[in-house]
Design a protein around this nucleic acid. Structure first.
Lengths: 351, 351
DNA sequence: TGAAAATTGTGGAACGTTTCCCTAATTTCG
DNA sequence: CGAAATTAGGGAAACGTTCCACAATTTTCA
């Protein structure tokens, strides 16, 4: 069973479960020696290491991840908990995350909350027992409390927020400059002559939505434009409903001449509404949208965007998490990292 | 340690590792009884089950997934191996997959090949040792051989293809009607009066690209239009390069009056090229693109698409995989499921 | 009434690694 | 030269769960 004759009669590909024990028998060494050799321990001679490695390769040994995890309390999995995946920002952020973690041999578990607080809680609860070593997350639009998150952190599972954070949780956060971006978008519209600017929000509680809105308000104030509560429009998860809301907004007697849309998915809504209502962009309405859509350039008119550094945010978040996993012993101070977004001016806001 | 006094002095949230053994001590029952009670075994009385459940809840016990996996050879993880994630088709397909598998308590591991064959091999190799129970995959554009996949299947890890398949592997496949869609797209352009139609491909080997192309060729033949090899343009992964290729195509003396673009990411390229070259769509060039972009409707002109049933394909693939995992004993016959795409006619091809 | 069957539970061996603690042989060095 | 240190490796106990093989009690029913 463990010599070359057996190998000959039984094709390698059909051999189930090449374990450390199998290698040990093959080499006439002890299990612990094999284990140490594979982990490059100083207790094993160079020669033995080579022999072990050779046989391991020949039998295409791959360590059983569950045995390792059970023993070592390390799963080599990290979770990415996000509201949805069909959104450029998150898709690109995942690319950034993946680039970093696969370097270190970690795997990425994707968990979708679909903007539901209940889902989010259920997902995190499951992570209490070691399925993942750490969590990267952007909270759902319904999330206002943080018990479920602090519970997880208490169980020594590090959590790093990116983009949508919960201020009150003391952990690492990677965000973009939402306030400044909201300000920049609004100021840009004002400079282009807008007198009445609407802000499309998607949540009353979300940090990003509120920070962007505060920037918007500040820009109005700084330019002596009176803020009107009715210019803040709360959109939903339902595109069909959103389009009705936006149309209603644009059909008021005194309708806005500028719009700041706080998330990518509102792009279609706004353009569609303008199309339906025959409103000219930017002639009658100027638009800036927070968006990472590559396709912004070929919209008609091309879309002025606040483009978030999605890839870098994902990469940074992953880097910070891996660092936390590394030296878990010494609890380093938590910090917030801000990576700035860029205002890219295109046709929807100017000429 | 195991009575209520201890609980009182030591807050629950700080208690590390609530194991089955801890529950056993707390309840004065054996470990195996607890295990069976939690799994709702018929060998345990209703009353005992209730008691166990109550304590498990109170101590917020969550089973250690690694112990279960090690013992039971089941990880409750499935892998989704895809070329990229910043693509509507894959993003939506993941939604479909997730909807199905989370129902059954499985988790989704996302693995990106970035269209590289080497990456794909490395990823599948790792799965040989049980990290995942099954694999859902769409092969990279470089993949032409299947050894790495059959190796995995030989190790009893079921693999289900979706969208981009390898015909020669005997396993379940979920595809869309690529040939017919290519045919329909091309026929539509012909009916609109196109005389010279170009086909933009992204791989010489990919099943989807070739099947769509065969449909294109057949449509030409059926309508007595001579096929010219120079009308097939092979695009790459590099957008900047692609735009040069497409521009070159459109600057020929005898330039095409129709384009069938075989994948979503070529949309931007084509529109951009037309924009730069001042070519009117659909006046001078009619376009059909294989795409799931929600934003197709607000392009200018709106984009005629072949829209794939991304969500359904993901859902079906996951369903088939879970079925294979269920009754792994009896090897059921492998089949191919075809879910049709839809031609949605919009402004880029008509009027 | 008494043996078989059902009910409800217990003990302990796996699963494959890792690591703490040994041992035996060899080397070092005062 | 002899004690200590170094080198190379082995034994066995975890990690937390599941499940097979029993055991003790109660019920069934011919």
């Amino acid at each position: 069973m463990h010599n070359s004759v057996a190998l000959f009669t039984k094709p390698v590909s059909k051999m189930k479960n090449v374990t450390i024990r199998a290698l040990a028998k093959e080499l006439n060494l002890s299990v612990s020696t094999i284990s140490k050799a594979l982990r490059d321990s100083y207790e094993i001679s160079e020669e033995t290491k080579q022999r072990v490695l050779a046989v391991a390769n020949r039998l295409s040994y791959t360590p059983n991840p569950y045995a390792s995890s059970l023993r070592g309390k390390k799963s080599k999995n990290i979770a990415v908990v996000i509201p949805e995946i069909a959104d450029s920002f998150f898709a690109i952020a995942i690319n950034g995350i993946e680039a970093v973690v696969k370097e270190k041999g970690y795997h990425v578990l994707i968990c979708l909350t679909h903007e539901s607080f209940e889902n989010e809680k259920a997902i995190l609860r499951e992570f209490g027992s070691g399925r993942v070593d750490g969590v990267l997350m952007s909270v759902s639009s319904e999330t206002t409390s943080c018990q479920h998150i602090t519970d997880l952190i208490d169980k020594e599972v590090p959590v790093v927020f990116f983009d949508r954070v919960l201020e009150e949780v003391d952990t690492d956060k990677i965000v973009t400059n939402d306030f400044e971006s909201g300000y920049a978008a609004t100021r840009h519209l004002i400079e282009k002559g807008c007198k009445k600017i609407a802000y499309l929000a998607i949540s009353k509680s979300l940090s990003i939505s509120n920070n962007r809105m505060e920037g918007y308000k500040k820009a109005l104030a700084d330019h002596n434009i009176r803020f009107e509560a009715s210019d803040i429009v709360l959109c939903t998860n339902d595109p069909a409903y959103n389009i009705d809301i936006v149309k209603a907004l644009l059909q008021q007697k005194k309708r806005p001449d500028g719009i700041v849309a706080s998330v990518e998915k509102l792009t279609t809504t706004v353009y569609q509404a303008c199309n339906d209502l025959q409103i000219a962009i930017p002639g009658q309405l100027r638009i800036v949208c927070f968006s990472n859509l590559e396709i912004a350039t070929i919209l008609h008119p091309s879309l002025t965007t606040i483009t978030q550094p999605a890839f870098e945010m994902g990469r940074s978040a992953a880097t910070v998490l891996l660092k936390a996993l590394d030296k878990k012993n010494e609890h380093l101070p938590k910090k917030q990292l801000v990576i700035p977004s860029t205002l890219i001016i295109r046709g929807s806001s100017s000429i």
